[in-house]
Each structure stands twice: as structure tokens, then as C-alpha cells.
Design a protein around this nucleic acid. Structure first.
Lengths: 133, 133
DNA sequence: GTACTTGCAAATCATTTGCATCCAC
DNA sequence: GTGGATGCAAATGATTTGCAAGTAC
């Protein structure tokens, strides 16, 4: 039994609050810009460290979609994402989780399957019109 | 109609051949080590450039799974992957593609959905025993 | 010759780390 | 005061790019 000391510092509080306030699945540096408006002296390293920590604590979700940067989500319920292949924007998909799917493949590959992730790809509304993102 | 000049240089030939010879979904640098045995003077940049080019030509697949490095697959048929969360190994999943799935969500998110990708997560046989990877 | 490719080294981009300082208890 | 948290700068890792030299037609 390890006793984790949960300290919600003001940085952590603001980072989580800002993350929850948007539905855009921001990257670490996007969130950094946002957080900086409230904590001008915060550092990008702190944002990275705390996004990692928040994900470990189950207070946020690190979502590894395509593209170079990782994105984060303040909505910790399980759900799938769509990513715009042009601008990288990520949105939630309203679809029930495919619950039986992991068992269906557990046998075939020798792996102990513990989870799955679906990422849809496409063009977001802004990019499918010619309009700039 | 653009006329693309397809030049299969010896580097490209060897890179594709080596990629096809393995079922491991190697990263660029893993493949580089492999290719180097046949072309000792090849550079890592060439491997990166040509993996990119081969994917554009539809001769290989760039698979963006979790983890820091991108992986590549000489098998261009559509299929899903499992990734070991401990060692990063990637394997194919024997499961039919979920064909209707994109249409099912096309309405809800405003995106024009063009594709999807499923990545299962788990432990590979080697990692689920205590054995070293 | 022209256009495309390559190897090499340097640059870039995202993320992580070392360390001295700071803060809460 | 002690241990974790922070800011800053420097380090790291993966990938990309500039450029001069090489190659195929």
C-alpha cells in the first residue's frame, strides 16, 4: 500500500480547470498558452509534468492520436475521437464503446489485451469548406 | 493529371524488400539497421525519406500507433494492430474490418469521415511472462 | 544537361531532465 | 526542516531539411 501524497497545487488546479473548460483536446503547448493567461510565470515543463501527473491520477486523459503532438482531454469518460487530417483538430465521437471487441481478438494474437482505441480520420467542418482553419 | 516519375532506386528497393521481409512493424531506425547490412553507406535520412515516399506511393503503410516512434508495415492490406504497452512491440490482429463503422458516426460530429484506425493495447507474450523483451 | 536522389551534417520540434530554489505542512 | 513542486535552461530523441555531389536517362 503506497501512500501517495496528492497535492493540488495552484498550477495543477489551473491546468486542470483550463483543460476542462475546453472541448478542443489541446496539445501541451496550446494549454500552456491558456494557463499562462492566469499564471504568467508558469513554465511549459510544469504543464507537461502536470498533464502527465493528472493522467496518472485519472483526472485527465492523455490521448495519443496521430500527428506529432500528444493531446489531452479533461473528459475522463471513455470515448472515441475523430481527427482532422488537414488541421489536426480533434473532436469527440458520439458512439457507444465497442465493449466485446477486446475479447474477440484476445485469442488470435497471443497478447493479453487490456484496452483499445479507435481514431476516426476525416475533415473537420472548417477544412471541408475551403475556409482557413 | 500529374505525371509522377517513379524511380525505384536500389535504396528504395532494398528498404521495401527488408520491410516486407519482417512482420515486426519496425521503426525507421530499426529498419535502418537492417538495411545497413545490405547497403552499408545508406543514411538514416534516406530511410526516413523513402519510407515516407513508399507510403505516399501506397507501397507501404505508415502506422501511427502510440509510443514515440512511428512504425512501418510492408503489408498494405487494411488491418488492425495490437501494441504491447511494455515493450512497444506491434502485431497484427486477425479481425475483419468494421466496415459500416464510419457511416455510423459521420452525422454526429460534422466531420467528413474518411477512415478509421483501431489500436488494441495489451501485453505481448514475452512481456506477460516475466521474461525480458 | 536535367531532374531526381543521396549522404552528411545541422536544424527543428516535442518532450524530458537536472538542478537550485520555493512552498506547504 | 523535509519532501514534493516549480521555473529555468540545457539535454534528449525522433524526424526533417539544406546542400553539394552523385546518378539515370
Amino acid at each position: 500500500m503506497k501512500s501517495e501524497k496528492l497535492r493540488i497545487t495552484s498550477q495543477r488546479d489551473v491546468i486542470l480547470d483550463e483543460l476542462r473548460s475546453v472541448k478542443t483536446h489541446p496539445t501541451a503547448d496550446e494549454l500552456y498558452e491558456q494557463v499562462r493567461r492566469r499564471l504568467p510565470r508558469v513554465s511549459l515543463a510544469t504543464v507537461y509534468r502536470n498533464l502527465e501527473w493528472l493522467s496518472e491520477q485519472g483526472l485527465a486523459q492523455k490521448i495519443e492520436v496521430g500527428g506529432r503532438q500528444k493531446r489531452f482531454d479533461g473528459d475522463i469518460s471513455e470515448h472515441y475521437h475523430v481527427r482532422c487530417s488537414k488541421c489536426g483538430r480533434v473532436a469527440d465521437v458520439e458512439m457507444d464503446m465497442l465493449d466485446g471487441i477486446e475479447e474477440r481478438i484476445a485469442q488470435c494474437c497471443g497478447f493479453t489485451v487490456t484496452g483499445h482505441r479507435i481514431e476516426f480520420t476525416g475533415l473537420c467542418p472548417a477544412c471541408s469548406n475551403g475556409s482557413a482553419c
